[in-house]
């Protein structure tokens, strides 16, 4: 399913752990040992307090639909209309995502609905964290 038209991210040293985790089917966050905040996107220090005492941890993968648009403009590797969303992870940080396994309509995409992480393989190196409606929970 490697799609040559999709934009493939290129990891940097500071983000490599995130993309290695995604390839292994894990959503990884970093957490500050000093102020205890979890944060995203990845970097080698805490953006809340500046501490370098940070650890990589596996996120629960649970999130809620925070905001989105349903894009009707053409985009390489995508079939419009499709949702571009921001999800809020259970741990606090927010990240961009598409919403998979769900009709791309305002009726189906309800703000605050529970979501769970899944991974979309873009290449041998890169699997993209994506979210879909949580299974076994009321939408």
């Amino acid at each position: 399913m490697s799609d040559p038209t999709r934009f493939i991210p290129v990891p940097t040293p500071e983000t490599a752990h995130f993309w290695e985790g995604a390839r292994a089917g894990e959503l990884r966050l970093q957490r500050c040992a000093d102020c205890r905040k979890a944060y995203f996107p990845p970097r080698a220090f805490c953006p809340e307090c500046g501490s370098r005492e940070v650890r990589v941890e596996r996120a629960s993968g649970r999130a809620r639909l925070y905001s989105y648009v349903i894009n009707h403009l053409p985009a390489p590797g995508f079939t419009a209309p499709y949702a571009i969303a921001v999800v809020e992870l259970e741990e606090g940080p927010r990240m961009m995502s598409n919403i998979l396994d769900c009709p791309q309509t305002p009726e189906a995409l309800v703000l605050d609905m529970p979501l769970e992480v899944t991974f979309e393989r873009l290449s041998d190196e890169i699997s993209l964290p994506q979210f879909r409606p949580a299974k076994g929970r009321a939408a």
Binding site: V69, N71, I84
Partner: peptide
């Protein structure tokens, strides 16, 4: 922006109309 290239562009954001508008649904609610 570096973060854009790794953590937004892979999700099919292509232009201001599909990214600048992203916070608005939250504000509406």
């Amino acid at each position: 922006a570096l973060f854009d290239q790794q953590f937004e562009q892979p999700y099919g954001v292509t232009a201001p109309p599909n990214r600048f508008t992203l916070p608005v649904l939250r504000k509406m609610k």
